[in-house]
Design a protein around this nucleic acid. Structure first.
Lengths: 64, 64
DNA sequence: TTGAAATGTAAAATAAACTTTACTTTTAAA
DNA sequence: TTTAAAAGTAAAGTTTATTTTACATTTCAA
């Protein structure tokens, strides 16, 4: 599972901490997802999609 | 988080066990998701979207 | 070039997803 | 109306997501 989070976040000039606050998760969670250490839960993926106004499939790519 | 799985599965005349096999998860996992006991992981949501040829947002609805 | 902000990382703990086993209840066809 | 398949459920265990704390490294503006 790959994602564009780093890019999308940069487009908004948000820090990892900013994004974490907006999503109500820890900064480490954002860092780990960006670095591909794990995938977000489905609810968190929905929050990201809502925040970035993009479908989940446009943010995450299934490489399985 | 709500979902149409029961309906989509019925459209294909698949049992919970059939669907579980197609997705390589346990039947109890399908049952629990259909009954709303928990949400699938993002990878499993992608598998479902692929199988049913529908975007994740069309299968799951964020009610948060 | 220093210093602060941002990012990366790690360990320990908790929560949520998922499995296995096993049993009960519902559904539907013979 | 019986009975087999399907669906529901529950407990115990494993794995994965997430938090908290804490520290190290990178980046970039003064």
């Amino acid at each position: 599972m790959k994602n564009n989070l780093k890019l999308l976040r940069a487009e908004q000039s948000w820090t990892q901490a900013d994004l974490a606050t907006l999503l109500d998760v820890s900064r480490q969670t954002i860092n780990a997802i960006e670095k591909g250490k794990f995938d977000p839960s489905l609810p968190l993926a929905f929050k990201l999609a809502k925040l970035f106004k993009k479908p989940i499939e446009e943010i995450f790519r299934d490489d399985a």
